[in-house]
Amino acid sequence: MDSTLKFMLLLIFQIPAILVSIIIFIYFALDSTVRSKPKNHIWLVLLILNFLALVSDLPMSMSYYYQGKIWVKNDGYCVWWNWYESSLNTLGLCLMAWASIERHFFIFHSQTIMRVRWKMWMAHYIPILLCFAWILIWNFVFIVVPPICDNIWYFDQLMCGAPCYYTVDNGIYIMIEFIVNIVCPLGVITFANILLITRVIYQKIIHHQAVNWRRHRKMTFQLWLISSVYLAFWLPNTLAAIIRLTIMPTFFIDQYDTLIFIIYFIPLLLPIVCLNTYPELLKK
C-alpha cells in the first residue's frame, strides 16, 4: 500500500475519531451516574489511551507516511516513539483481555463479588493497575534501557526500525513478548466471548437460571462489539506471524507492512464503536 494512501486513510478517520472521543468524554464528565459505575471504568480507561494514541502517537506515523522519513532524526525520539506506541498497543490489548474476563464477574457474580469492597478491588482495580505496570515496565526495560544490547535506529524506517532485543539470542525475547503480550490476550478475548455465550445458554437451558438480559444485554453487547474491533485488526497479523514461525517462514511476508498498518484502525474506529454502545448518548 502506498505511503500517501496510508497517510490519507489515517487522516480521514483521525478527525471524526477525535471528535467522537471528545463527545464521549463530555458525556462521562457531565453524567456522574454513568461515570461512577464500575462497569464503565474499563471502557473509559481504554478510551483515554485511545485518545492519546489519536492525538500524540498517530501523528508520528502520519508524519512518516507523508514525508517518507523520520522528521526528528534523534535517538531519543526513536526510543520514545517505540516505547510509546508499543506500550499503547499492547496495553490496550491487555486491558481488553481483562475487560472480557471482568464482564463475567459483572453479569454472573455481581452480587457476590462486585459488591464486596475487597473483592471489588481484587477483581476490578488491581488487574487494571497490573496491566499498566507489566506493559510499561517491560517496554521500559527492553526498549528504553535494554540491558542485553544496544539499540540502533534507522531514520528512514517506520518507528526508526525495531528495538535491538528483537534479534538478540535468536529472538527469544521478542518471542516471549509476542506470546505473553499479544497471543495470550487475544486468546483470552476470544475464549471469554465464546464462554460468555456458552454460560448464558447453559444456565438458561440446563439450570433454567436465565440471566436478566434486560439488565445485562448492554454489557454483553459492549463486550462483543468492542472486542471485535481488537480481534479484527490484531488477528490477521498475529495468525500470519504464528504461521511464519511454525510452518511457512514466507507466509504473507509481502503483506507484513499492511498487516501492521491496519492495527492503526483500532484507535481510529474504537470511539465510533463505543458511541454505538451508548444508545442514550446517541439519542442526545
Rank of each mutant, 00 (worst) to 15 (best):
Y173G: 07
Y125T: 12
V20C: 07
D156L: 08
K204A: 13
F191G: 05
K284N: 05
K73H: 04
V145I: 12
N170W: 06
L239N: 02
H109S: 06
T167W: 09
L10A: 10
I206G: 01
A17E: 08
N151Q: 02
I128L: 14
C184K: 12
T238Y: 09
F108T: 10
Q203A: 06
W43E: 12
I143A: 02
P16F: 03
Q14L: 12
F7R: 01
H109E: 10
D156R: 04
V141A: 07
L52F: 13
A162S: 11
T246V: 14
I70D: 05
S32P: 00
L49N: 15
T112G: 02
V116R: 07
T220V: 14
W81V: 12
Y256V: 02
I179G: 05
C184P: 00
P146Y: 05
L269K: 13
Y125A: 11
W138N: 03
K37V: 03
V229G: 03
Q67N: 15
P163A: 03
K283M: 12
S21G: 08
M114D: 04
L46T: 03
I143S: 02
I148Q: 07
I205H: 09
W43Y: 15
S3F: 13
T238F: 06
V229S: 03
V34I: 12
D254E: 11
M120F: 15
L44G: 13
S228P: 00
V45Y: 11
N151L: 02
I48S: 12
I176M: 10
F233W: 10
L196R: 08
V45C: 12
G68A: 09
I189P: 02
Q157N: 07
C131M: 01
L54H: 06
A210E: 15
P236S: 09
P146I: 05
Y65L: 11
M114W: 01
Y84Q: 10
Y154T: 01
T198K: 15
I22E: 01
H207P: 01
C78H: 07
I152Q: 14
N212W: 00
N89W: 11
W83Y: 14
I226H: 02
G161E: 10
F140Q: 04
N82P: 04
C274Y: 08
Q111V: 03
N170M: 09
I42N: 06
F142H: 11
T90G: 04
W234G: 02
S36W: 09
V200R: 05
